[in-house]
Design a protein around this nucleic acid. Structure first.
Lengths: 271, 271
DNA sequence: TATTGCTGTTCCGCTCAGAGGAACAACGTT
DNA sequence: AACGTTGTTCCTCTGAGCGGAACAGCAATA
């Protein structure tokens, strides 16, 4: 989870905010889940109550409730609480509802074998990129990420390619909603320049993230289309700059594009 | 999810049950999540309210709340609701908290390459076996299962081996809590016979599930020990009976045991 | 093109669920 | 033995949130 802030914690302590009709107890329960998720490991009642500024007894009741659903479990020895495997089960359900994964996976494996770098499969959700699959590479130096994890859209290969092929309205909306944060010297933070850049990506059919999100990581993203031709996902190859050289890029970009095309075809896209 | 009944739905409509101090609204929210998980796909408010026998307005408010936490999302076109990727994120967090997975995975892959059958990694939780990893095999006929999924302990290779090496008290407690259901003609439903069987498993160091849970599937389970020597997990090789013949079993059992031992050693067990 | 029957959504008043605070028990530490 | 922790229990009071009904928006019927 790291820096990914959890949305449910926001609305914690402004209960009587009219308009959005929500249930305080549930908001708080979700906040506890988020908190337990963020701090990998166990948390005690006192610590939770402090961090969320809730009453100890309230937290106790909430945790009790979460335990009957097996969303949370209590370590009998330490009396502390941690996330239960029921969440794992639900999470995997979400993952399996995305049928694109099943189609794409063999192609991703093959691509990994060729490129010898980490492969990601991602979709655009809300205003972020979500990784829905990842093929790890067995090399000491490689990108760490997590299925289900998020990344910004304007400075990653996946995100840029997804937006380059989105309807202009989507781009416009995201641009208005998103603050372009300068992660590295290479991050494009000027909206006008970004729009130009995306046009170029659309023209050439692939996006390169040249250390725009994290220094030392370069990556290539290409679009994946459904049977109607709309870009519904993207795949990317990411590696350390010292291996992802201009030479190597020249060599693998056609392969990556080809893989993207073949997945699109497998999804019914006629080209 | 299939037949796995969700614990939180149970306590739905007996609110004033004293003793267990729980929060109705949260119980209901969790029940909605479970329901959405079970019926893979979208559900409308009316359907949810009927299935859980709750008021439509109540369900609406609950869903609204779950949406601010991104636990649930609404399809703008159909207006129906489905599980959000935040659950995926939380689920993967749970999975990554189990560090055993990281250690074991390379060994499991290697074992799959040798046996050419599905490999499972499982732990005992509550009174069931939970799969925490799975290596699929690329063959048309192979076992379907899911990471995070559950299985009974008394009729699977994983479960039997986990219990054979558990302290007697654990076995006793599980025996008293569990009803031994006859899944197939081979399922051992006599507690006395089961106890004998487990003793034999402990002696020989591996468990065979000979179509005891599902007809047509045979599997071999071996224990995995932590640095203290206690059995904390198990791995298994499962395949269709026509491939998992006596001959093949004789051949692969030593390999499987060896893999288990090597993982245990990697976890610090000195043997 | 009305009509009917579905949805999902909004409103509002009454009430009991549940929040809060404090006291309690069971620890390990000083 | 006194203290500072923890998690847990109890009790009281009140406003969150439940239920019920009305509303709106759409689609398929007549």
């Amino acid at each position: 989870m790291s820096k990914e802030n959890s949305p449910s914690i926001r609305a914690l302590n402004n209960p009587t905010q009219v308009g959005e009709e929500t249930i305080t107890a549930v908001i708080r329960a979700l906040a506890i889940l988020d908190l337990l998720g963020q701090s990998e490991g166990e948390l005690g009642i006192t610590e939770i109550s402090q961090r969320l500024s809730l009453q100890k007894s309230t937290v106790f009741r909430l945790l009790n409730t979460l335990m009957v659903g097996e969303y949370v479990r209590q370590n009998p020895a330490t009396k502390k609480y941690y996330l239960g495997t029921h969440l794992l089960r639900l999470g995997m359900t979400v993952l399996n509802q995305i049928e694109l994964r099943k189609v794409a996976q063999p192609y991703l494996r093959e691509l990994m074998a060729v490129c010898n770098e980490v492969i990601h499969l991602g979709i655009l959700e809300q205003n972020e990129v979500i990784y829905i699959d990842k093929i790890d590479v067995d090399r000491p130096l490689s990108m760490v990420s997590r299925i289900g994890g998020k990344s910004p859209w304007y400075c990653t290969g996946l995100g840029k390619v997804l937006l380059a092929f989105s309807p202009p309205a989507v781009l416009e909306e995201l641009l208005s909603k998103t603050k372009l944060v300068q992660f590295t010297p290479n991050t494009i933070t000027d909206p006008a320049r970004l729009v130009e850049h995306l046009k170029q990506i659309q023209a050439q059919g692939y996006a390169i993230d040249d250390e725009e999100h994290e220094l030392g990581i370069r990556c290539v993203g290409v679009p994946i289309r459904d049977y109607q031709g709309s870009v519904i996902a993207a795949l990317s190859v990411s590696g350390p700059t010292l291996r992802m050289t201009q030479d190597k890029l020249k060599q693998i970009i056609p392969v990556i594009i080809n893989t993207g095309n073949r997945i699109s075809k497998a999804l019914g896209y006629m080209g």
